[in-house]
């Protein structure tokens, strides 16, 4: 009897200690989260303030008047929608390009045998490491000569030859699929490319969504290339547009933050829908050399 009580006590103490550790851990994680959360909330808070409220001392997290009109101003005073539309146009074309090219290329590397394959595969890998800037000047001069500066061609053409990162990703993905699939399809009379488009590709959809998601994300955030290739401001992408606002509204931080928030919103929304895929995709490639 006495003994049993002691054991119960020990268990209770153990549970209490575990509880305390768990509460402390969460407290720590939550305070760490603040470093990531507060800047974003503060941006939101600034974006709905009036131009006087942003300079209030002490600053208020929740302004008395929520001035949603800032967002309307952002969209009416500058062709924000146009920049968004331009960027979406580029994204759609690039996505089509990647989806046409990458599965075909990855299939060749993952499934077919041909002389020189390993050397070429090493080239795919090594091009992932080369800084884009290394080829920027000759590319720029080439596009000047064929009259493609200030068009979207320099931005979308590379997608039609497949981004090395995506090629690598899909090769790895295809390699996990059993070869028996190919053999069975061959017996059923499918040709080499029939196997790719009828059998393998439908199974690659999870990997393809990663490709689509990253094409969106990277194109949306891309800054250097549009900056170099585009001159007319009607053709600007969203990030260039945002950079331009900085010059127009130098101290109107409420409008600047509204524009920044509007720029981030599509990415954030997409991130929340695709976060598992996104993180999984980057992790699978980031780990191995």
């Amino acid at each position: 009897m006495n003994n049993a009580i002691t054991i119960a006590n020990v268990r209770k103490k153990y549970r209490q200690k575990k509880m305390l550790v768990s509460v402390l851990t969460h407290l720590f994680m939550i305070s760490l989260s603040m470093i990531f959360l507060v800047p974003i909330l503060w941006m939101f808070s600034t974006a709905i303030k009036s131009r006087w409220d942003i300079f209030l001392w002490p600053p208020e997290f929740f302004p008395k008047v929520w001035q949603w009109v800032n967002f309307r101003d952002v969209f009416t005073r500058v062709p924000m929608l146009r920049f968004i539309g331009n960027t979406f146009f580029i994204i759609v074309i690039k996505t089509i390009g990647e989806l046409l090219a990458v599965p075909l290329i990855a299939y060749g590397f993952a499934r077919l045998r041909f002389p020189g394959k390993n050397a070429l595969f090493m080239l795919v890998i090594s091009t992932m490491m080369i800084p884009l800037q290394t080829k920027l000047i000759p590319l720029y001069s080439m596009y000047v000569r064929i009259g493609l500066i200030d068009t979207y061609w320099p931005l979308i053409l590379p997608a039609f030859s497949g981004t090395p990162f995506f090629i690598f990703l899909l090769i790895q993905y295809m390699k996990t699929m059993p070869r028996d699939l190919d053999d069975a399809a061959k017996i059923d009379g499918l040709g080499t490319f029939g196997i790719l488009y009828r059998i393998l590709l439908p199974l690659c959809i999870p990997a393809l969504t990663i490709i689509v998601t990253y094409t969106f994300l990277w194109t949306w955030n891309e800054f250097l290339q549009p900056l170099i290739y585009l001159n007319t401001y009607e053709k600007f992408t969203i990030q260039m547009g945002l950079e331009m606002f900085k010059g127009i509204w130098s101290v109107e931080w409420n409008l600047l933050m509204a524009a920044t928030l509007a720029t981030m919103a599509p990415v954030l929304i997409m991130y929340f829908f695709a976060q598992k895929r996104l993180i999984g995709g980057i992790a699978s490639v980031g780990m191995k050399g």
């Binding site: 075909l104 077919l112 090629i167």
Partner: peptide, 8 residues
């Protein structure tokens, strides 16, 4: 094989 990797 060469056809499939030709875009790249």
């Amino acid at each position: 094989g060469y056809i499939s990797i030709s875009p790249w």
